[in-house]
Design a protein around this nucleic acid. Structure first.
Lengths: 255, 255
DNA sequence: AAGAGCATTCGATGATGTCGAATGACACTC
DNA sequence: GAGTGTCATTCGACATCATCGAATGCTCTT
């Protein structure tokens, strides 16, 4: 892993946590000399990846990041395949629809279809949710080969599953049923249900699901079936050999 | 400028131009040894800034870019100030509203309010337009201290202004009037009008404007005035000392 | 079955990023 | 209005670290 590049990305990640930071704050956060950070930041500055406030001298993320993210979205085959089905799902169920991918233990929302009846809703594309706390995330963890990232399971609400053993058991069930649920584990008053999207290689690169108000939980069978149907259809379009995805072979526990 | 970091960002930029690339293609594009690119890419891969297709081995942008871009949007004070006024402007004029910032000779759209009557419209947040070919861009070039980036003015349509001298003259007019227009210079059938957003330091960090169908051009005075009013109001909220922005002092041409 | 193209690994080289200290600018205080 | 703190920034020497070319193993093609 190349040191300078790694540090550059770390700077972006730190900047993404706090809106605006002084050079010293960034250096302290990363335990680096300020001049080291300065050199890297100047390079990022030249490409618009970070911006500097003219008056205070502080640093923020730059517009080039927005451009990158936008291109990522438009080159994501998964997303383009999801859009049509998501619209249909939203109409059919009356719920908001989300699709997401895994990013190091978190789910990044790559598509969001607002509730049909709802008025102005925040566009949620790009937001990040801890994987263990949402239905989309559980599906992705269940389908991913990367044994859940061994980092502590942060509690979001009182109902968040924080026990790795309990989560592992839940993932096992999801692998069999092909459906994950979540009841107020990420946000109070919000539940979720999700199903895996499978690609040609049998991997699970994404998940599709509904955001359900707690007042409408549990969800009726028709809506659940609609999610399953949509996920299966999208997976077929992606060339999936089977759905739900074949259960991944575990290296024998005795190893 | 730090070499390794610069190369890393360049890789991202190249990846943003072509959807999927092999390692060799990237190396050739940047005139680097494949193994050099490989080291950098592995680092970016570890942070999710790029992703590798499991089967073909090719590289694409990764989900971390989406997260970065999303955070950028939400930390942009300019944008949060624009949202309310944009909605109002769209209702009042019946046109789509855009706000943008400058990124190295291009405009990046940071907010997009769809036409009120329109049906499904592509969300345009994050798209990039050559600055010299759109109203937003002309405003930003007129207000920016960075003398237009000396790179060739690419022609988008037959009406795109490609002569630097002509563009410079146009910018001079914009500096006086505080309003820029564009008639089918970026997209056939589409015109635009825009006004500068001024911040507390008197700089022009962004621009606000309308997207007008060619059939509705020229725009009536009421709509033009509405744009001017919105831009002035937003600028005041940002603490602007004056609007339109004070004309930047040119170093005497004799120097 | 042989070949080509690809990503990937490895090790030696010296170019290059890193750090600490010094500078200059700014703002706030006494 | 002088003083003092913090801040971004610059500079130069050192040693680390990124770079490159060649070699490997792989998959797909001929």
């Amino acid at each position: 892993m190349i040191q300078a590049v790694d540090r550059a990305v770390r700077i972006l990640m730190v900047l993404q946590g706090a809106r605006r930071m002084s050079l010293g704050e960034i250096a302290a956060e990363l335990e680096l000399a300020p001049s080291t950070v300065h050199g890297i930041i100047r390079t990022l500055l030249g490409h618009g990846m970070v911006a500097q406030e003219r008056d205070s001298g502080r640093y923020r993320l730059g517009p080039a990041t927005l451009r990158l993210g936008n291109v990522y979205l438009h080159t994501l085959e998964l997303r383009s395949r999801v859009v049509g089905w998501a619209e249909d799902l939203a109409k059919r169920t009356g719920c908001a629809v989300r699709a997401g991918v895994l990013l190091q233990g978190d789910v990044v929302v790559v598509h969001h279809e607002p509730r049909p009846d709802g008025g102005r809703q925040m566009p949620e594309v790009g937001i990040v949710i801890p994987a263990h706390a949402c239905a989309l995330g559980k599906v992705l963890l269940a389908g991913g080969s990367d044994e859940l990232g061994s980092r502590p399971l942060r509690s979001m609400t009182g109902d968040t599953v924080t026990d790795p053993a309990k989560l592992r058991a839940e993932l096992e069930v999801i692998r069999r049923t092909g459906i994950a649920t979540e009841v107020e584990e990420a946000v109070i008053g919000e539940c979720g249900i999700a199903a895996p999207l499978v690609d040609a290689s049998g991997e699970v690169p994404g998940a599709l699901g509904l955001v359900v108000p707690a007042s409408r939980w549990p969800l009726d069978a028709a809506a659940t079936e609609a999610v399953r149907t949509a996920a299966r259809s999208i997976s077929q379009e992606l060339g999936a050999p089977s759905w739900p995805p074949a259960v991944r072979e575990w290296p024998a526990a005795s190893a």
